[in-house]
């Protein structure tokens, strides 16, 4: 078992608000790790530490470390642009940019100065196929992405993230705004993607966590309660709180 990321004694503060308390957990390579827990427990906050999204806002502070390839990515001199190329993120609501379907997927590639149009075309098609949305959009690549359905938009956003070939993708309740069929497609896609990338997914949907993830971490008021293989978490957890939470008696 390889750890791609190691979260060690991580603290996080929104100004005076101590939102993460001494969180330690590994993220295994080529696996899906689910983050679960009641609303406000810090799942999003933890997820956004991985790609340093908190740096966009003033007064946010990290403590402890997240180690990747032997390096603490929370260091002040970390290059955030290349870090975010390695750790992609998919948000709760689809966020298509106000441009064509093609330009959306090509966005990250163009940022990396890929200009050659045949290379762009090939990579865009590959990403859209990988995100299981190619068949639905191949005839409307030049139309505005806002015209796609919510589920298609979310898969487009996943394709946009995949196009830059990240090593990790962070999903923040990425299926919670979607219908069951789109959700199913994205779940299948996540499992399929494990070959190439490592996935960390925040979810409120216990069945989803049980179905797709290899590891599950339960959080409660900013702290990690329990981390283990998903099967263990759902069948014989060590903590009573975990058992109550996954069976829906708590939270």
């Amino acid at each position: 078992m390889d750890d791609l990321l190691a979260v060690r004694n991580l603290d996080f503060y929104y100004g005076d608000n101590h939102a993460l308390r001494d969180v330690t957990l590994p993220i295994r390579k080529n696996s899906i790790t689910s983050l679960i827990g009641p609303s406000g427990c810090g799942k999003t906050t933890l997820l956004r530490c991985f790609n340093r999204m908190h740096d966009l806002y003033p007064n946010n502070r990290y403590g402890g470390e997240i180690v990747m390839d032997g390096r603490n990515i929370l260091r002040d001199d970390e290059d955030l642009i290349s870090l975010r190329n390695i750790l992609g993120m998919v948000f709760q609501k689809p966020t298509p940019f106000p441009m064509s379907v093609f330009d959306n997927v090509a966005y990250g590639l163009r940022l990396k100065s890929v200009r050659n149009s045949s290379v762009l075309k090939e990579k865009v098609e590959r990403a859209l196929r990988q995100a299981a949305v190619w068949e639905e959009v191949k005839d409307r690549l030049n139309q505005n992405a806002a015209g796609l359905s919510g589920g298609q938009q979310q898969r487009l956003v996943i394709a946009r993230t995949l196009a830059v070939e990240p090593r990790v993708i962070l999903f923040d309740e990425s299926t919670s705004a979607l219908d069951p069929i789109s959700t199913q497609k994205i779940e299948d896609l996540m499992v399929e993607l494990k070959k190439d990338v490592t996935i960390v997914a925040v979810t409120h949907n216990m069945q989803q966590a049980a179905r797709i993830s290899d590891f599950t971490a339960l959080m409660y008021v900013g702290a990690l309660v329990e981390y283990d293989e998903t099967a263990t978490i759902f069948t014989k957890p060590r903590h009573k709180m975990t058992e109550e939470y996954v069976t829906g008696r708590f939270g």
Binding site: S82, T161, V164
Partner: peptide, 25 residues
């Protein structure tokens, strides 16, 4: 802001986020 965040999350520098996403919107 979610739109800007999506662009930042792809590794865009702030000036690019402004010119290619915010101005466009």
């Amino acid at each position: 802001w979610s739109l800007r965040e999506a662009a930042f999350a792809l590794g865009a520098p702030y000036c690019k986020v402004i010119t290619s996403v915010v101005w466009r919107s």
